[in-house]
Structures are given as structure tokens and as C-alpha cells.
Design a protein around this nucleic acid. Structure first.
Lengths: 112, 112
DNA sequence: ACGCCATAGTGCTTTTTTAGAACTTGCTTG
DNA sequence: CAAGCAAGTTCTAAAAAAGCACTATGGCGT
């Protein structure tokens, strides 16, 4: 089964995963919730390649989680903004964050 | 960046995704929460190949989310059981389920 | 003992995805 | 005119996943 087929699954968890069930999508969304909105911001923040980033942004726009809003006409440029649908992923991100904080302590310290 | 490197990320969301950030892992966990515990049950339920299933179960055991408990000595056989750490993913699964129910309606009806 | 079934995986080959780095495009600024 | 920035796109190689078939271990029926 390829993961596009998941989008019509009877199970809502499976359908959700058809949208954000990969390593990078939720990290992009996390960045959106932190206020990021541009390609370069996402690229610098996450560890994914620009290639994957472009692909994931496209998928998220198709899925209605983000919208691509022009912020410059001159060289056509866009902000990626959370829709209401996307905003409502905040609780999900928080439960995942809480689980990580509780159960996955950092081994290699990066913060002071 | 490969996804194993995510496990030491400063961000707890990223660390969480290093454990369950793929298309199938959360579906296996969903099945666990529904009471499934055996290889064949997971195999019949989800759409992943047996190959991937075996790999994900191994990772989940290594991550301390599941434990592999023998239920038969004769032919060595095991149940995969949620640990407390695994049980605590229930809220996360529920928020994902709720989001899916609300925002990703089924297009191709499968239920009556 | 022999064939057949069940569970829990492995092996192998093909296809799809990802990584990683360079390149393109459109426009701005020095 | 050269340099730079933002937002991608292209290309190649490597990794992961799909899809089947196959193995291993033991039970059961005859």
C-alpha cells in the first residue's frame, strides 16, 4: 500500500497520517506555529533538504493545511500561512511535544 | 540529515518524530491500543508489508514503547505489548484521530 | 511418518523516496 | 555590470519501501 491510498482509509488516524505521516511535515508545521512563514526560514530551521521542503509545502497547500500567499509581486514570492485547519493541529503538536519531553530526554546537550 | 539524528534534537517534537515519524508506526500503535498484540494481527490490519512491520516492531521495542513478551515456548512466539511509555501515546493518537475526523472526511465510503 | 496448516518472520528484486549539492530565475543593490 | 538574495528546480547516488515468495518451527489429522 502506498501512502496516498491511506487518505481514504476508514480510520481517521490513518487519514491524518496520509497528510502528516512523515518525518518532516510536522516539523514544518511546528515552525509555522512558531511564526515562520517563508521557504528560507523553514530550510534553515529543519534538517530536510530544500527538495523535500518544496514538496511538503506543496502537499500541505493541497491538503488545505497551509495557504500560499504572495507577499511580493516583483519576484513572485509567497508566505506559507496556516489555515484554520492547520491551526487546529496545534493540540496534536502539543501532545507530541509533551510526550517527547517526558519520555525522550536529550542525551547530547545542546542548550545551556 | 537522516532521521536517527533527530533523536538528539533540542526540540521535543523532533525527538518524538524520531520514534514515530513515519507512515506506519502510529498505525501499529493504534492497533496496540485497540488490543492487538501479535505480528499477524498487525499484518492483517495495516497496509504495510511484513518487512516493514518487523522493522517497526523492532524499533518500537528498542525505543521502549513496546515490549516483546513470549507467549509460547514451543515455537518461540511473542506478544508485543505497550509499555507505560507507549500507553501514554494514547492522548496523541486521540488528538490526531479527532483532527482527522473533523478535517479529513472519507471520500470513498467504506462503512455503511 | 507424512502432508498440511499456522505464526513469525527473511530474502530478493523492483520501484519510490530521500539526501546532497549545484544550478536557475527574477529582481535588487553597489 | 557584478554580487546577492529568495525561492525554488535539477541531477545523481543512496536509502527505504513495495511486493512476493520462501524459510523455520511446531501442531494436528490420518
Amino acid at each position: 500500500m502506498k501512502w496516498s491510498e491511506l487518505s481514504d482509509n476508514w480510520c481517521p488516524v490513518a487519514r491524518t497520517l496520509s497528510v502528516l505521516g512523515d518525518r518532516w511535515t510536522l516539523l514544518i508545521l511546528r515552525d509555522c506555529l512558531l511564526g515562520f512563514s517563508r521557504f528560507e526560514q523553514f530550510a534553515e530551521s529543519g534538517g530536510m533538504t530544500r527538495h523535500i521542503l518544496a514538496d511538503r509545502l506543496k502537499r500541505l497547500v493541497e491538503a488545505g493545511v497551509l495557504v500560499r500567499q504572495p507577499y511580493s509581486d516583483a519576484p513572485k514570492r509567497y508566505d506559507y500561512i496556516l489555515t484554520d485547519k492547520g491551526q487546529e493541529l496545534a493540540p496534536a503538536l502539543m501532545t507530541l511535544r509533551d510526550w517527547g519531553k517526558k519520555h525522550l530526554p536529550v542525551r547530547r546537550a545542546t542548550a545551556s
